[in-house]
Amino acid sequence: MLYWLMKRVLLGPLLHVFFRPRIEGLENIPAEGGALLASNHLAVSDSFFLPLMVPRRVTFPAKMEYFTAPGLKGRFKKWFFTGVGQIPIDRSSGSAAQAALDTGVRLLREGRLMGIYPEGTRSPDGRLYKGKTGVARIALEARVPVIPVAMFGTDKANPIGSKMWKPYPIRIKVGKPLDFSRYEGLSGDRFVERSITDEIMYALMELSGQEYVDIYAAKAKEAQAADEQGALPLRERRSARDIDRVPDTEAG
Rank of each mutant, 00 (worst) to 15 (best):
Glu27Tyr: 04
Gln86Leu: 14
Pro55Asn: 05
Ser39Gly: 14
Gly74Pro: 11
Leu26Thr: 08
Trp79Lys: 04
Ser93Thr: 08
Ile29Gln: 12
Arg56Ala: 05
Phe60Asn: 03
Met53Tyr: 09
Pro30His: 06
Glu65Lys: 05
Arg22Gly: 11
Val44Gln: 14
Ala43Trp: 07
Asn28Ser: 15
Glu24Met: 06
Lys78Thr: 09
Phe49Asn: 06
Arg57Ser: 10
Ala43Gln: 09
Ile23Pro: 05
Lys78Gly: 13
Leu72Trp: 11
Gly74Glu: 06
Gly25Glu: 04
Val58Cys: 03
Pro30Asp: 10
Gly94Val: 00
Pro51Gly: 09
Val44Ser: 13
Leu36Glu: 13
Met64Cys: 01
Met64Glu: 13
Phe48Ser: 05
Arg91His: 06
Gly94Pro: 01
Asp90His: 02
Arg75Ile: 04
Lys73Ile: 07
Leu50Gln: 07
Lys63Glu: 15
Phe76Asp: 01
Phe81Lys: 01
Phe81Arg: 00
Arg91Gln: 07
Asn40Met: 08
Ser47Lys: 08
Pro70Leu: 09
Gly34Tyr: 11
Ala38Phe: 12
Ile87His: 08
Val54Met: 00
Arg56Asp: 02
Ala62Thr: 03
Asp46Ser: 11
Asn40Lys: 08
Gly25Lys: 08
Glu27Arg: 06
Ala62His: 08
Pro70Asp: 14
Asn28Thr: 11
Phe80Pro: 02
Ala62Cys: 05
Met53Phe: 07
Ala31Cys: 05
Val54Leu: 00
Arg22Pro: 01
Arg91Phe: 01
Thr82Ile: 01
His41Phe: 12
Phe81Gln: 03
Gly33Ala: 14
Leu72Thr: 12
Ala62Asp: 01
Leu50Val: 15
Gly85Lys: 05
Ile29His: 06
Ile87Asp: 02
Phe48Val: 09
Arg22Thr: 14
Phe81Val: 10
Phe67Arg: 02
Thr68Asn: 14
Glu24Gln: 14
Met53His: 09
Ser47Ala: 15
Ala62Gly: 08
Ala38Tyr: 12
Met64Arg: 14
Gly94Arg: 04
Arg57Asp: 07
Glu27Ser: 13
Ala69Tyr: 12
Leu37Lys: 06
Arg57Trp: 01
Pro70Gly: 10
Gly71Ser: 12
Pro30Lys: 08
Gly94Glu: 01
Val58Met: 04
Lys63Cys: 06
Arg56Met: 07
Pro21Tyr: 00
Val84His: 02
Gly85Thr: 07
Pro70Glu: 13
Trp79Cys: 03
Phe60His: 02
Gly33Phe: 13
Arg91Tyr: 04
Asp90Arg: 03
Leu37Glu: 01
Phe48Pro: 00
Val84Trp: 06
Ser39Trp: 08
Arg75Ser: 15
Leu72Tyr: 05
Gly71Arg: 09
Pro70Ala: 12
Thr68Leu: 07
Ile29Leu: 12
Lys78Ala: 14
Ile29Gly: 12
Pro70Gln: 11
Ala62Arg: 05
Val54Gln: 00
Arg22Gln: 13
Leu52Asn: 02
Phe76Met: 12
Ser47Ile: 14
Arg75Asn: 15
Ala62Phe: 09
Met64Gln: 13
Met64Gly: 00
Val54Phe: 03
Leu72Arg: 15
Phe81Trp: 04
Ser92Leu: 02
Ile89Met: 10
